[in-house]
Design a protein around this nucleic acid. Structure first.
Length: 270
DNA sequence: CCGACAACCTGACGGC
DNA sequence: TGCCGTCAGGTTGTCG
């Protein structure tokens, strides 16, 4: 998935073609993704004007002048295509703008979601209720993390993937941030020294910031809305690099945690 | 509260 | 060339 940087990049890309535009045609092409798509989505969005786009965690928000907000999640394989030549079987929602652009939400695995909520009640949206702070926001600092991790014996990797602790990190950037901060992924969250938590906060910010700057990373099927691929993957320190050298000179190891691959360097991460 | 696991779904890739 | 097993960025729920 698209983790936070990819969603941020997507939102920025969509903003250039959607902001201020009327949605002249809205076409859901199937009734569900991971869960049902609101049945009245077409009716509520057709003719509305997009007044802004935002991101919360890994969700993209499209606000309209009718007081509705379309909330999308890209799951593992979702992406928006701008002016796709042909509509394929995985293009599940089509939006046409007053300027004549076509946007297609493409998601082969359909782990993504589409919701339409009252713009004034975003905070009450079920998926947002338990979300932790934005990792790039002012709330996310060593003191917050110390409180959130206090007494927790779970591995720091699992805790950082928990969207209730901090919202927006996924498997790639957790691996990257822990390597940058030189923390072993299996370390109990509550046992990390306060100064180390400060280092971790900075590492998370640095990794996410660099990825956004690079335009989002790419794995198999991620693409920017304009079709260009991101290139942050070239900068990955450990993710997907089993057997290669860590910047410290050690060798990148891979192990499974809860069914997901963890990449880390046993030499500098402890 | 915790960890492990399964489920959701399709496509890409490596091995034979 | 083709078949088969494995793996993939997430979220949600169950079970022990």
């Amino acid at each position: 998935m698209p983790e936070l940087p990819e969603v941020e990049t997507t939102v920025r890309g969509l903003r250039t073609v959607l902001e201020g535009q009327e949605l002249t045609e809205v076409t859901p092409r199937r009734p569900d993704l991971r869960r049902a798509i609101p049945p009245d989505l077409r009716q509520r969005l057709t003719g509305a004007t997009v007044i802004g786009l935002r991101r919360r965690a890994k969700y993209g928000l499209i606000d309209t002048d009718r007081g509705d907000t379309l909330i999308f999640h890209l799951g593992m394989s979702g992406r928006w295509r701008i002016d796709p030549g042909e509509i394929g079987r995985h293009d599940h929602l089509l939006l046409k703008t007053g300027a004549g652009h076509v946007l297609a939400l493409n998601d082969p695995r359909r782990f993504g979601s589409l919701d339409l909520v009252d713009s004034d009640e975003i905070a009450a949206f079920a998926s947002f209720m338990a979300l932790g702070p934005e990792p790039l926001g002012p709330e996310f600092k060593a003191s917050y993390l110390a409180d959130a991790l206090n007494g927790r014996l779970a591995p720091i990797k699992a805790l950082l993937l928990d969207q209730r602790v901090v919202a927006g990190l996924g498997n790639i950037y957790v691996c990257e941030a822990l390597n940058l901060a030189k923390i072993h992924p299996g370390t109990a969250g509550g046992k990390i020294a306060r100064t180390k938590l400060g280092t971790l906060v900075k590492a998370i910010r640095a990794v996410l910031g660099a990825a956004i700057e690079a335009g989002g990373s790419t794995l198999r099927d991620y693409a920017r809305p304009d079709g260009e691929l991101g290139y942050f993957s070239k900068q990955w320190r450990v993710y997907g690099r089993e057997g290669e050298h860590c910047p410290c000179g050690g060798t990148v190891n891979r192990r499974a945690d809860g069914g997901r691959s963890t990449f880390f360097c046993p030499k500098c991460q402890r």
